[in-house]
Simulated scan of single mutants.
Amino acid sequence: MAAAKGTVIITGANGGLGSAIAKQLVFRPEFVNYHGIYLVRDANSAAGLNSALATTSSHPHDVFSMDLTDLDSVRKTAEGINLRISAGSIPQIKTLILNAGTWTKDGFDTTFSANYLGHWLLTMLLLESMDKESGRIVLVGSQAHE
């Protein structure tokens, strides 16, 4: 396999759309040489994502636990990713897909923390590792919480 062209990071990679995006990275030839970082609430129970990734052994990737409602978790995850990129163990970020979202039956605070604050902080902390020429940030929105 050729050297990775860049890193693609997806939040909410264990859900419907997140798993579908991960599956595209695995199957589409134009993405085969990208390193995937899949961020999920609990990496130990990421059945949807693991199913999408199980179809290949050649896709370089990592699956990390990160709770977007816990800003310390976001900081630690971003720090770890930035350190790996600055050390050269993974390539610069080409695409940051902010897909994760959560909703609760009773509250607005969890939704606001995960969907807005967590993604904003993650983006700000990872900007130093973005490809300055062609990096992209994709924010996925939904009205599903309504």
Rank of each mutant, 00 (worst) to 15 (best):
D62F: 12
S65H: 15
S65P: 06
S65V: 15
M66V: 05
M66H: 08
M66L: 06
M66A: 07
D67A: 01
D70P: 03
D70F: 02
S73L: 11
V74T: 02
V74Q: 03
R75D: 06
R75W: 01
T77G: 12
E79C: 08
E79G: 12
I81R: 01
I81Q: 11
L83T: 00
R84G: 05
I85E: 04
S86T: 09
S86N: 06
S86R: 11
A87M: 15
G88E: 04
I90A: 04
I90D: 00
Q92M: 09
I93T: 03
I93R: 01
I93Y: 09
K94F: 11
K94W: 05
K94R: 10
I97E: 03
A100D: 13
A100W: 11
A100Q: 14
W103D: 12
T104P: 01
K105R: 14
K105Q: 15
G107C: 11
F108I: 15
F108W: 13
F108K: 08
D109N: 14
D109V: 15
A114H: 08
A114T: 12
Y116R: 09
L117C: 06
H119P: 01
W120A: 14
L121Y: 07
L122A: 10
L126V: 14
L126R: 04
L126F: 12
L127K: 12
L127S: 10
D131F: 13
D131K: 01
S134Y: 03
S134E: 01
I137W: 04
L139N: 02
L139V: 03
L139P: 00
V140S: 11
